[in-house]
């Protein structure tokens, strides 16, 4: 099976973890990353899509056996990493009393605006490949929101992506506080956004566990 990891700096964290903990199984991993949520300074999509090739092209960084372009048809599974707000952050944005349907619609809308959505859309145009999605890790220094809200939001994110035939890989519970924040030990020092090497290893482990599990049945 070929696994294509596409992401921003968070994919870079996974790659470092991958280098430390190589896959014992015979999976063919390819990593493609671009900083700053795939956007250039003008806020445009820095990663172009070549419809003729069916490929995402011009990644600043790639690693693996498939060349510089992420050709969709070459891969059985995509792991999309980062460029999607963490559940706890979305819960914070939506931290007020509202109806269940409005909260679900708001979560879906935020997910749709995440830069990862473009990759999902383009992959799904030509491929039934499995897609796993990993959001940014939760921050560790934000004002916490009630843990129940973060859990509900994570559930709604998973439900939304399931409707797009995308499986959410959740942040490993061991890296998180009860409020849904990342424990400081699993964040880089002086960085409220990225995993520490230990955190990244646990995140990579979560991806591997998800790959080992049967593909989730599409919910709609």
């Amino acid at each position: 099976m070929t696994v294509c990891v596409i992401g921003n700096s968070h994919a870079g964290s996974l790659l470092k973890a991958f280098n430390t903990l190589p896959d014992a199984r015979q999976l063919d991993w390819a990593f493609y990353s671009a900083a700053d949520s795939y956007r250039d300074n003008a806020g445009l999509n820095a990663i172009a899509y070549d419809a003729k090739q069916g490929a995402f092209v011009d990644f600043p960084y790639h690693r693996g056996n498939h060349g510089p372009n992420a050709v969709i048809g070459n891969h059985d599974c995509f792991v999309l990493v980062g460029a999607h707000p963490a559940p706890v952050r979305m819960a914070r944005w939506l931290n007020q009393e509202m109806s269940d349907r409005f909260r679900a619609a708001a979560v879906a809308e935020i997910c749709r605006y995440a830069p990862l959505d473009r990759f999902v859309r383009l992959i799904r145009q030509s491929s039934p490949a499995r897609i796993l999605l990993m959001t940014r890790p939760a921050p560790s220094r934000d004002q916490p929101v009630p843990g129940a809200d973060a859990a509900i939001t994570e559930e709604l994110i998973a439900e939304y992506w399931a409707t797009r035939d995308v499986e959410l890989v959740r942040q490993p519970a061991v890296t998180m506080t009860r409020d849904g924040m990342t424990r400081p030990a699993f964040h880089k020092p002086n960085d409220n956004q990225h995993y520490s090497p230990e955190g990244a290893m646990l995140a990579l482990q979560a991806v591997r566990v998800a790959l080992d599990a049967p593909r989730a049945v599409r919910t709609s």
Binding site: W93, L94, N95, Q96, M98, S99, R101, F102, A105, A106, E109, I110
Partner: peptide
């Protein structure tokens, strides 16, 4: 108010 992150279209729908 609706949360600021939510689009006007969605907010008005609700």
């Amino acid at each position: 108010p609706a949360p600021r992150i939510v689009s006007k279209r969605l907010a008005q729908q609700f």
